[in-house]
Design a protein around this nucleic acid. Structure first.
Lengths: 345, 345
DNA sequence: TTGTATGCGTTATCAA
DNA sequence: TTGATAACGCATACAA
């Protein structure tokens, strides 16, 4: 029922002090966990309950010049980033930290606006996956003591922390398994090769061939963007080749979904006609037939690593021992990969 | 590189005023969009750029008693809620509003903490899906002028706005289609029947039978919780029956996934052995074989409806014309449903 | 159109 | 251990 808004103003610390019959200093100290006389403590607690007082985080943040907020800037609210956000927000809340989110959609203007937003809100730290971030914004924030943590991205500015997964090694394992299964024509749908992650994942693909002493099929590298349409386009391209790949390594899950769509449309059966290994493990891969082999990024561990960085740097005020944390991925072999079999014509 | 944090303090509005050679009042007005002399405007703009000043949202929010933050309290960061968050955060950002998130995990203690959190941060509005919310918290917040919007949930307190989807009607359509296909033994895996949404969806199931003049098979109602395990348990139960259902209506996607798992495990083929219609449409349903028929909640529209509520109530300061917005779901018929065929023994 | 001055709810510094 | 008081950065009422 939309009733006229009453706007009873929230009780302030002064109200509490008056109700409890003491100075606001004492109340403030109680709230912040300093020692007060047990008798006073009780009276304060009762006053707080009576007035249903809750401290004003804005005022406290303004005075103490610490907002206790951290920003999270993601390209997208896909399954991975939603999971990251969830884990991060929850774990940071336990430390009394708030998470502000912004989604840049790979759009510079939006990202710029996001930076403005985070600066305006005086976030104490900024966690982001945005390689094109404006250098001026970043350096300005760092100069002001904002901790910058980049996730799975390399930006070479001074003062930032980095958390990454072992992209290269995990990719190596996946592709090596394909090679072990007898595949040599293994396509790589790389994602955006201007990005560090894409480069690393492709490097893992190369490593696998090198380790197996097989020349890497450079003609099967398909550079593109990160989306479904790219996976689909890659398949269109591959399937027109004289010797198409017998297996594919896809650099993220959206690309893989695009590949799956193409396979559906063209009656390509996994793993008989094609083996597929994907970076990123999503729910859809568990319910497709066959289930898709995938490299899972451990969202929980990543969130913990980021948190550790934040606390370490803020609590101890000392430089991190190492500026980069590496988190290991899980590699799941599933039914979408199978032994190489020569193409029946 | 972890360098010693410099902590250069951010420029304040006073700094800007000095640099521009005028009073902070003028600068403040410029920032807030009031008219200033063009000449002054230029000087202010330059000063702001030189100092790379960004206004302190905490201070401004404190002064104006409006944090411009809204809270979002969700049970989970699943595909649906992640989508909602994304849409909401993006659309609200366009209005200069910040979204704070908290996930209660259906846990009272966590939810309680979330309420404390939102009150402390003086959110101007709270969007939530939490039927067990503490009445005292709610009424206190409403009294203080916080707008409460419940999503797809009914809490009967005065002063709240509600946004819901047409659960009952959409369910009716889905089940009617199953009946049209010849099914009469249609199971209902209901989710938590203490919840309004669950009741509504079950009511839609009943409506369909009534409209078809068929007695509803009450023995096929399986009350449970909302998770994968519940869908699995439901199937275990059904499959032991003398006359098991030939079709199933599942009240959310997690339940459906549990059902899919059971079918995989027991070689139950969709739609030959069983038809499945699910509430909630997720990516996994598009990539399973067969694709799962589902009712999609239009996350974008829901976010817009919520936004409309927020703006309406805050801009015009008048009561909403109606306290409840209904958003229509899309009903997708897909290959997981097929004509009834008598069970071959 | 602009300047001045007050106060928002806290924390922190200083004496007591 | 506590009380009084000065900031914190900004918006705004009022005066000019």
């Amino acid at each position: 029922m939309a009733m006229p808004r009453t706007n009873k103003k929230p009780a302030t610390i002064t109200d509490v002090a008056i109700a409890a019959g003491m100075s606001i200093g004492t109340v403030s100290r109680y709230i912040n966990g300093y020692e007060v006389k047990p008798a006073n403590k009780e009276r304060i607690e009762r006053a707080i309950a009576d007035l249903s007082f809750s401290p004003n985080a804005l005022a406290s943040g303004m005075k103490s010049a610490d907002s206790r907020m951290v920003g999270l800037l993601v390209p997208d609210y896909d399954e991975f980033h939603a999971g990251l956000l969830g884990n991060l927000a929850t774990t940071l809340a336990q430390e009394g930290l708030v998470t502000l989110t912004y989604c840049h959609e790979s759009n510079s203007a939006v990202a710029k606006e996001a930076m403005r937003f985070f600066r305006t809100h005086r976030v104490r730290a900024l966690i982001m996956s945005w390689p094109d971030a404006d250098r001026n914004d970043i350096t300005e924030m760092i100069a002001q003591g904002v901790q910058i943590v980049t996730y799975d991205n390399i930006i070479d500015f001074a003062g930032g922390d980095r958390v990454v997964v072992n992209n290269r090694e995990a990719s190596f394992k996946a592709v090596s398994e394909l090679i072990r299964l007898g595949h040599t024509r293994i396509g790589a749908v790389t994602g955006d090769l201007r990005r560090w992650t894409a480069k690393e994942r492709l490097a893992g693909w190369r490593d696998a061939f090198e380790a197996a002493n097989i020349p890497a099929p450079e003609d099967l590298i398909f550079p593109c963007d990160w989306y479904r349409a790219d996976g689909h386009r890659a398949m269109e391209h591959f399937w027109k080749m004289d010797t198409p790949p017998s297996a594919i390594f896809a650099a993220n899950y959206q690309i893989s979904l695009g590949i799956l769509v193409f396979c559906q449309e063209n009656d390509i059966t996994l793993p008989d006609d094609l083996s597929l290994f994907s970076f990123d493990d999503v729910e859809a891969f568990h319910f497709s037939t066959p289930r898709v082999a995938a490299i899972g990024q451990p969202v929980h561990d990543i969130a913990q690593a980021i948190k550790a960085r934040l606390l370490e740097n803020n609590k101890a005020k000392r430089p991190a021992t190492t500026p980069i944390s590496v988190v290991d991925c899980a590699v799941h072999f599933r039914e979408s990969i199978g032994p190489y079999r020569p193409k029946s014509v």
